[in-house]
Design a protein around this nucleic acid. Sequence first.
DNA 1: ACCTGAACACCGTTCAAGT
DNA 2: ACCTGAACACCGTTCAAGT
Lengths: 210, 210
Amino acid sequence: MAAKRSGAQSKRSQRTGASLQSVQEPRSEPALSLERIVATAVELLDAEGVDGLKMRRLADRLGSGAMSLYWHVDNKEEVFDLALDSVLEYRGPPKMVEPRDWRAEVVHMLEDWRASMLRHPWSASLLPRRALGPNILSRLELLSNTLSGAGVADADLNVTIWSLWNYVMGATITRASFDLSDDDRAAAQQRLTRLSEHYPTIGTLSSAVG
Amino acid sequence: MAAKRSGAQSKRSQRTGASLQSVQEPRSEPALSLERIVATAVELLDAEGVDGLKMRRLADRLGSGAMSLYWHVDNKEEVFDLALDSVLEYRGPPKMVEPRDWRAEVVHMLEDWRASMLRHPWSASLLPRRALGPNILSRLELLSNTLSGAGVADADLNVTIWSLWNYVMGATITRASFDLSDDDRAAAQQRLTRLSEHYPTIGTLSSAVG
DNA sequence: ACCTGAACACCGTTCAAGT
DNA sequence: ACCTGAACACCGTTCAAGT
């Protein structure tokens, strides 16, 4: 996903005095691009969570000045939206199955969707609060078309789609937030067991959420 | 919910010079208390959403200095946790039904839970990311006990509870985020219909989410 | 015990400017 | 077209102090 086309001018090479902390950025950075910004934002979100994404930190990782981002992007919210949608891209079902089985196709897309969100735990809790990007809209469109082709009446499409949406979100969002960070997870676990004295039955609840 | 016991000393009455913007705070404020802080935080969250809760703004509403909050509360996160849990309090099923029907009891608690979250749309998206407070733990405990009493084997309790949890969350979280703010809602609606050209079927999706 | 203002560190973003 | 640092507004929180 990282752009690698042209070599960068590395205008800041003259700045390197002692190059103490330049271990993080080994070579001259490629030019800034929306693609690279989004990919790096996803990395940062994976590593540090939603609160870890700061414009300056993102710029640092990209080896650029903090303000350079604002030429490619309007504001931080747009970074969130782009990172979120980029993670939800759907490449379609495996080519193996040619006999178009609508049920298998729906299940595959939904399971892939859930897997994508679990791979990037911040995305699940972000998704309901942000506008729907093109990739998630594509998934909904595919779902809609497949169900429609399978014979679901137009009048029922709405409820069907939102039911599936709700099902996947419900089966994912709690599970994903358990994976948010090891610290939180450990703390939550500890808190649960500590409170098990006051809430006897609940104390035995494992974290097998999904 | 607002504490009303003792009159406050109103030490800042001597400060009022022209009292231009004192329309918002009609009388001498009651003393600060955790109860009052949490109740006001909920008000603020209802009115302005998650991003609208700032310590200074909260203090303003309470008619106190910004730093006074920090005597009652460790940090902003604790305010979130307390506000969230306060909104999830369960007062139990109506007294009418004496013949303890476990199914009715479970359904009532879950529907009440969902209704509570929809009444405070910020709470649904906050719940999966925060530690479980005493009120939500009480609900889980009640659920656990009721199901157990109804004959659900201990080995199945875990899966049962989390399935119900996931179902309620799925049925609530998307719906709640539609109610987050009228601005967002309108923008999302407009965005959906604008994008309906590229995604023909999706464009007809109404917001009848839940 | 309870409250306060000044001050600090940090962060998103504007702006005027550089190439 | 693309990038930059200085500067501003804002926010959470520390601290030393008041009553």
